[in-house]
Each structure stands twice: as structure tokens, then as C-alpha cells.
């Protein structure tokens, strides 16, 4: 389950900055970025940054977690619809699993995701936190 640092590095644009592809013809936004719009075959796109607020559309609770996330269990993994309509999956943090609800307002926050043990590289990325301001 280790996130290799080279793979993580290649994904900074998504994990750190929420960069997505917005295609000219369809106006649709894809995250992570794509080279070709699967609906239209269009390759003309602009890079947009996804909004950092949304609502949970569905979630599941992880009670028996992979080893890298065992200390965080139980935790919720949720799909949230961001304010531009793009859907994103992430862990919900700063929140008891009993409080996670469909329709809950969340904010995207930069957090530590996992590490390669005590000696390895730290992986950072996005998580959802309950929106309270």
C-alpha cells in the first residue's frame, strides 16, 4: 500500500493543486486530468483548479483499514460533489464517522496522507473536513 515517492511526485498537480482538464467543446471538467475528452474526442482544453468546497453525495466507513491508515480508523471515505459539479473522492478528517452524512457540506484541506515508515517520504494531498465557516 506504500505510495512510491516517484508516483506521488507525478501526481502533485492533482494531489496538491486540484488541477483538472476543462474541455472546450463539451465544457466538461475531468479530474484527474485527461488528454482526450471521452465524449467528444476533443483535445483542446484548459487547466482549471477545482473549487475547494462541496457536498457529500455518498460515503463508506472504513473500520478495518489498510496498514498505512490503521491509526486513522474508523474513518469515512466520501465522494463529494464540488461547487462546479465535479466529483472527488477523499477521506473525511476532523470528524467522527457518526457525524458524516449525505448532503454534508465539506471543505477540501491539504493534509498528510501517508508516509513510507519512519524513514521514508511523506505523502501529502487533499482530504475533506466538515465546513463550519
Amino acid at each position: 500500500m506504500t505510495m512510491f515517492s516517484s508516483r506521488n511526485w507525478r501526481e502533485y498537480q492533482h494531489r496538491y493543486r486540484l488541477e483538472a482538464s476543462k474541455f472546450k467543446k463539451s465544457g466538461k471538467t475531468y479530474f484527474p486530468k485527461r488528454t482526450v475528452d471521452p465524449e467528444t474526442g476533443d483535445t483542446e482544453q484548459e487547466i482549471v483548479k477545482l473549487p475547494d468546497e462541496g457536498k457529500i453525495v455518498t460515503y463508506t466507513v472504513i473500520r478495518v483499514a489498510p496498514s498505512k491508515f490503521a491509526d486513522m480508523a474508523p474513518y469515512a471515505l466520501a465522494i463529494a460533489e464540488l461547487t462546479d459539479g465535479t466529483r472527488l473522492m477523499a477521506q473525511v478528517t476532523d470528524c467522527d464517522v457518526e457525524q458524516v452524512k449525505i448532503g454534508m457540506d465539506v471543505r477540501v484541506e491539504f493534509r498528510r496522507i501517508q508516509d513510507e515508515g519512519h524513514h521514508g517520504v511523506l505523502s501529502y494531498g487533499y482530504k475533506f473536513v466538515p465546513k463550519w465557516f
Binding site: M72, T93, D94, E109, F110, R111, R112
Partner: peptide
């Protein structure tokens, strides 16, 4: 700070 928060993550949010 919870386990997924450190000096780097605090810095990113404050900078935003």
C-alpha cells in the same frame, strides 16, 4: 494537531 496535520499542512492552509 491531529496525525494528518504538520508544519507543512498548516503552512499551506495559512498561505492560501
Amino acid at each position: 494537531p491531529p496525525p494528518d496535520m504538520d508544519t507543512i499542512t498548516l503552512s499551506v492552509e495559512a498561505s492560501k
